[in-house]
Amino acid sequence: MIYKKILIATDGSELANRAVAHGLKLAKELKVPVVVVTVTPMWSALEIAHEARLTKANPIESYQGSAAAWAQRILNEADEQAKAVGVNFELVHVPESAPAEGIIATAEKQGCDLIVMASHGRRGLGRLVLGSQANEVLAYSKVPTLIVR
């Protein structure tokens, strides 16, 4: 299969940055554009209540501002990497979403035919406790997914 547009998912971690580099290299070789996406999760009601008890004036607004700044930092790094490699790219921040859902929805919306993302490869209890966004994407996405470990 020849891919025409690649989505690269990143959370800014060292492992995710390796997936970004891998996806960008693949895109350059195939001469296709990429969409780099980062997803900031929803804030739980318990966290909101805790922050409100600490007399924060508007804890939701504070969280949204922090999440947007965090996402911008991650996307700025991807921007630099994509420019250095010389591929056409678009940067997307999906706020307040479950990561796997945001990745899948963005791939579908942007017409991507390959998702590139990292996986820590956890097994056993670590996988059960922490979950696996990569496994969720593999299980629910109709778009083929390349996992970088």
Results as ranks from 00 to 15, higher is better:
45 A>C: 02
45 A>K: 14
45 A>Y: 07
45 A>S: 13
45 A>G: 04
47 E>S: 07
47 E>A: 11
47 E>I: 00
48 I>N: 01
48 I>H: 05
49 A>V: 09
49 A>L: 14
49 A>Q: 11
49 A>Y: 04
50 H>Q: 09
50 H>V: 09
50 H>E: 13
51 E>R: 13
52 A>T: 15
52 A>P: 11
53 R>Y: 11
54 L>A: 15
54 L>V: 09
55 T>Q: 13
55 T>C: 01
56 K>N: 02
57 A>M: 09
57 A>N: 01
58 N>D: 14
58 N>P: 02
58 N>G: 01
59 P>Q: 05
59 P>N: 02
60 I>C: 03
60 I>S: 00
60 I>E: 06
60 I>R: 11
60 I>W: 08
61 E>T: 06
62 S>C: 01
62 S>N: 01
63 Y>S: 05
63 Y>G: 03
63 Y>K: 09
64 Q>F: 09
64 Q>E: 04
64 Q>I: 02
64 Q>D: 02
64 Q>Y: 03
64 Q>R: 10
64 Q>M: 01
65 G>P: 08
65 G>L: 05
66 S>C: 00
66 S>R: 14
67 A>R: 09
67 A>S: 13
67 A>F: 06
68 A>F: 11
69 A>P: 08
69 A>D: 14
69 A>L: 11
69 A>S: 13
70 W>K: 15
70 W>M: 10
70 W>G: 12
70 W>R: 14
70 W>E: 07
71 A>L: 04
71 A>N: 00
72 Q>R: 14
74 I>S: 02
74 I>P: 03
74 I>D: 09
74 I>T: 03
74 I>R: 02
75 L>Q: 02
76 N>Q: 15
76 N>Y: 12
76 N>S: 15
77 E>T: 12
77 E>C: 00
78 A>K: 03
79 D>P: 02
79 D>K: 15
80 E>K: 15
81 Q>P: 00
83 K>A: 04
84 A>H: 12
85 V>S: 09
85 V>C: 04
87 V>A: 12
87 V>Q: 06
